[in-house]
């Protein structure tokens, strides 16, 4: 075919840098504007929104993080469930959760409406923090401390599913988070000065 009009299988003849029809230009413009909206939502949510994956991030030796978690357990342990310590830290404190094949340590007991800094890390391989049933998900990587400010907005008995493949026992890796309505006075646990 030697016509100007051609399919994508034929070489365009001569110069192909030609003006496009208005409808095409308008669509490119609209698509571009929409991409800008897609972009703008992210900074906007950092500024106005309540859910951001920013956190306080730093590198940490996996063993050191685990040691810090155990120290945290000793400080605030109130009970055990199936051999796993239940820890009730005071509102506002730094709290530590270690993922390892195939468990989450410890069980956290938190208060509704209070803010905590939740430190996530792993002892061995990658794990996935997935809070059931509200569906909040973070990657947990050995060697990195992910410190997220969290504020539970409802009381209840929650689970932590591991949603990153971590070995053949991956599907048995479930942790627990308990959120209680804030007591009238005082804080549970033995600590108090974080």
């Amino acid at each position: 075919m030697h016509t100007e009009t051609h399919t994508g299988l034929e070489s365009p003849k001569g110069i192909w840098w030609k003006p496009a029809h208005k409808s095409e230009k308008v669509w490119v413009g609209i698509a571009f504007a929409w991409c800008m909206v897609l972009f703008a939502m992210m900074p906007l949510w950092h500024w106005k929104g309540g859910q951001n994956p920013s956190g306080i991030r730093r590198r940490v030796e996996p063993a050191a993080f685990f040691a810090r978690t155990q120290e945290f357990i000793q400080q605030y342990q109130v009970d055990t469930d199936r051999g796993m310590p239940i820890v009730a830290p005071p509102p506002g404190s730094d709290i530590y959760l270690t993922g390892m094949s195939f468990q989450w340590t410890p069980i956290l007991k938190l208060q509704k409406g209070a803010e905590y800094i939740l430190h996530l890390s792993a002892l061995d391989v990658n794990h996935g923090f997935s809070l059931y049933p509200i569906n909040v998900n973070f990657q947990v990587i050995p060697g990195y401390d992910y410190g997220l400010r969290i504020t539970p907005n409802a009381s209840g008995d929650f689970r932590i599913i591991c949603n990153e493949f971590c070995g053949i026992g991956h599907h048995t890796m479930v942790g627990r988070v308990i959120v209680e309505d804030a007591p009238a006075t005082g804080t549970p646990g033995t600590g108090g000065t974080p």
Partner: peptide
């Protein structure tokens, strides 16, 4: 997935897990 069902997961009844997860 919008219920939080994980990918790459053998058993979401969690029959071998220490805690139940009642989807």
């Amino acid at each position: 997935g919008s219920f939080g069902v994980p990918r790459r997961h053998w058993d979401i009844t969690f029959s071998q897990a220490p805690f139940d997860v009642p989807f």
